[in-house]
Design a protein around this nucleic acid. Sequence first.
DNA 1: GATGAATGAGTGTTCATTCAT
DNA 2: TATGAATGAACACTCATTCAT
Lengths: 198, 198, 198, 198
Amino acid sequence: MRKKEGNKETAIIEAAVRVFAENGYHQSKISKIAEVAGVATGSVYLYYKSKEDIVLKIFDLVWMKLSKELQQVVQRTDMDPGTKLDSIIDILFDSFTVNPALAIVFVNEQNQLLQQEKGNVVKFYKGFLDLAEEILREGVEKGIFNTNIDIRLFRDFVTGGLRALLHEWARRPEEYPLNRIRQNIKYIAKNGILIHHT
Amino acid sequence: MRKKEGNKETAIIEAAVRVFAENGYHQSKISKIAEVAGVATGSVYLYYKSKEDIVLKIFDLVWMKLSKELQQVVQRTDMDPGTKLDSIIDILFDSFTVNPALAIVFVNEQNQLLQQEKGNVVKFYKGFLDLAEEILREGVEKGIFNTNIDIRLFRDFVTGGLRALLHEWARRPEEYPLNRIRQNIKYIAKNGILIHHT
Amino acid sequence: MRKKEGNKETAIIEAAVRVFAENGYHQSKISKIAEVAGVATGSVYLYYKSKEDIVLKIFDLVWMKLSKELQQVVQRTDMDPGTKLDSIIDILFDSFTVNPALAIVFVNEQNQLLQQEKGNVVKFYKGFLDLAEEILREGVEKGIFNTNIDIRLFRDFVTGGLRALLHEWARRPEEYPLNRIRQNIKYIAKNGILIHHT
Amino acid sequence: MRKKEGNKETAIIEAAVRVFAENGYHQSKISKIAEVAGVATGSVYLYYKSKEDIVLKIFDLVWMKLSKELQQVVQRTDMDPGTKLDSIIDILFDSFTVNPALAIVFVNEQNQLLQQEKGNVVKFYKGFLDLAEEILREGVEKGIFNTNIDIRLFRDFVTGGLRALLHEWARRPEEYPLNRIRQNIKYIAKNGILIHHT
DNA sequence: GATGAATGAGTGTTCATTCAT
DNA sequence: TATGAATGAACACTCATTCAT
């Protein structure tokens, strides 16, 4: 009977994303989320156990989708590590184009959740890092990536850089065309900024 | 004459850094900060106007020190842009070696403050971004840096990457020797990860 | 439809009047008001913005009722100033017979509010004084009241006297039958205490 | 050694009067009183046990002086009740001419203290009322005052009226010349406002 | 005595969560 | 399910009072 999507469960999540993005998790009131969702305050608790449950659900949804898609890329044998890196970046940004606010929440609240080890965030995040590492390792082994770099470190660096761009783009999408971001990141990741005089 | 080390103003800031680092700003109670500082709850308010005032003071201190040192580097005419980039990275990490917890607060709470435009954080941060941009532009003009990259974007990417590493390092300093971080970042920033077959 | 007597908004105001009357505004805790109102502490804030908002609301209610009734009396052309003075006194006391505690709050806290110029108290009070003055002036012009008295001064004197009686009566209603108060005030106001040997 | 009166005990009382007059007892901070008195916060407690102790001391001083002078007037046998009433009024106003702020405190805070039965205020006040009553009774017995009035009530009314005038005068002394107040009160008290057509 | 930094009990206010309807 | 009024625990902040110097 919950065909279409006048669905309140979804409406609440979407409202929460908007409100969290604007004010941050702690500054956001459940009553405000309910209002934005067009629902009574109490109704929020019909679908979610608590405020925390809402953020965790948001992260679950994001990570679920991301990890599934990422997994598929990594497992492909017909792609070289460089192309895979490209794909990861594409997947990441494509996931948020429909909802930039989601990117803001994703970037702003993740650290908090990781640190408190709440929900599945840690698990998902570690999985993501592992994937990235795997690709990098594969590339190094195949002699495509530079052996001089510390994989773990590089992984963190790139991840952080992506987060920052995701955030900036989400805050001012018109100033940060996705295409340009993609191209640049890929270029930087592969070439750095120094001009190579051969 | 009784300023130096029995200094409560400093003790409170230091306690706040520790508590904020561990629990995040919003989860941190003033009473806990006071306890850690070895001071009565009310004493906190002898030195700081409010809880917010404390974070802002922390950021002021960090940024004041950082911006002064960064300024000096940027203004030097005897350094090429590449070396300057190295120096920025050094300054950044050196600033936090004495107090990794400070890095955690710095990384975790800055976005909130930026978004709410509280205190001087926006001003300082913009100044920092400008500096980074200036160096990059200088590098591009001198034909040292790649002209294919979008300076603004690169700036954000590197900044984000640095933040991530700062955070990781601060959480597990023993696993992330500073030297290795430094070398890798510099290497990555300049060369990317792709092996260049000339 | 569930407004009438289960009304918490009213219950809180009434509780506040009782508590303020007993302890004074500053000694009164919101939690105590809530308790007396048979309501949770937080519920107070569903109906009133703050503690101050409550007193101001109390004064608004009192003055609103008073000023409306007083206005009607003053505007009547079929009453001589002496009778009007009588009516004012009647209105004043009648307003509080249902709730003597209200008179105590009214008398005790008004000065504070006047001095801090909070809410509409100043406006209402000035209006009241103006009305009283108008009647007195009318009486003097018609040759009914003594021209030797300073109207402004008399106004303050009578007002103060009334306040004092209101207060005494409210504290021990049984010892101060309203009828006696009324008769005496009117008598005094008109005749003073000196026996006039004609 | 405490000859002159660089006396801190006095300075504190005087400061307290000023501060209480301006902000009211509860809004007044000990630290502010100390500051105005040109004394350290802690020093206040060398002379007074508590904040309450200070107001009580103020009232003690006022009432001590008043009651002594009033007593003398009442006991005189060479004065008729009417003249005695005049004298009471004079004594009252003269007591505050040197320090109008004291009148404000006296008027504003007395009710609070009476209600809580703190210190000697109740005792003093009752004594004062008794005195006034005595004079009135004497006047009635001697056939000078009107027998139609309730002495107790009249006493409260006049007292209240005086308080109001005292307050108004203290707030804007230039607009309320003492002479005029005195004359009017006396006139009103004795004659009321109605013109007596004999 | 004098100081003013330090204390910590006390309270107004918020807001996640519950629950009667 | 849905509501939104009601709850009450939690916490930032104040300020009378203390006390080491």
